[in-house]
């Protein structure tokens, strides 16, 4: 298969970027999207040009590192997959493909398609945990947890922290990401002790990082490669109101 790739090139955070067009030929339809970029990069290297910088690691859709905005969609046209799981058979021979980095001021570009997502780490650091020191735990079966709650907590916990939700949102809101962690811990008995402080601190950090507000458009959930439900945002809003009604942080 042959394609015309229009790829965002940007030297560094402070430089201005532009689209550069690269034709690429003889790509197998079984090749993955990132393997196609590998092939292009090898051609560029052997011509002495700089390859396209992009984030990737596990290449099986779980580490959350890959992050390409392809033809107007985070992770490309297919649903419920990451960029590394996208294959060229999802495109037509001769297609023009536009590739951009995540666009959000809270995720500054490092180079080309690579952005800085450390804001997500700082949101988790603000409260996305249960404060239990190693060795403090009681027997794992001492507290039975209803299967439906455990399953819902698991569904929220499958967030891979890739940032597609932010990239998809017109406001660059991080509500889906933040609410997935808040929800997971809100649904489990272990999370109750710190529930109030957690949601207050995580939301405050999210705002501080410069993510936008949520207007319930739902693009985040629709584009999420793990199908994290927007129900989590509703649950976080409830947790937040509950916490604020009795908050000591006034």
């Amino acid at each position: 298969m042959n394609f015309t790739l229009k790829i965002w090139r940007q030297k560094g955070a402070k430089d201005s970027g532009q689209f550069v067009t690269y034709p690429i030929k003889d790509i197998s339809s079984d090749s993955s999207f990132l393997e196609m970029i590998d092939i292009l990069n090898n051609q560029l290297v052997e011509k002495g040009e700089e390859p396209i910088a992009f984030d990737h690691d596990c290449r099986e859709g779980i580490c959350g590192m890959c992050s390409m905005y392809i033809n107007g969609h985070p992770h490309g046209p297919e649903n419920l997959i990451t960029t590394c799981q996208l294959h060229m058979r999802s495109f037509k021979d001769g297609d023009s493909i536009t590739i951009e980095p995540w666009r959000s001021s809270a995720f500054p570009v490092i180079k080309d398609l690579v952005v800085d997502r450390s804001a997500f780490d700082r949101i988790i650091q603000a409260g996305g945990y249960v404060s239990v020191n190693t060795g403090n735990a009681q027997d794992a079966n001492n507290i039975p947890i209803p299967k439906t709650d455990a399953d819902k907590a698991f569904d929220a916990a499958t967030c891979i922290g890739c940032g597609a939700c932010v990239a998809a949102c017109k406001n660059a809101s991080a509500m889906l990401f933040t609410s997935a962690k808040v929800s997971q811990l809100a649904l489990l008995p272990q999370g109750q002790v710190e529930a109030k402080a957690r949601v207050e601190n995580m939301v405050a950090q999210m705002d501080k990082e410069g993510f936008g507000a949520c207007t319930n458009t739902g693009a985040c959930s629709a584009e999420c490669p793990k199908g994290i439900s927007i129900e989590n945002i509703a649950r976080m809003n409830r947790e937040f109101i509950k916490a604020k009604l009795s908050s000591e942080n006034v």
């Binding site: 190693t134 060795g135 794992a140 079966n141 039975p144 947890i145 455990a150 916990a157 997971q184 489990l188």
Partner: peptide, 22 residues
């Protein structure tokens, strides 16, 4: 055995049976 206890205490959502046990 301690690992499973520790992880459950951290909020790791392991698979459970309908009775709520692991």
């Amino acid at each position: 055995r301690n690992i499973i206890d520790q992880c459950v205490a951290q909020g790791v959502p392991f698979a459970r049976e309908y009775g709520g046990y692991l």
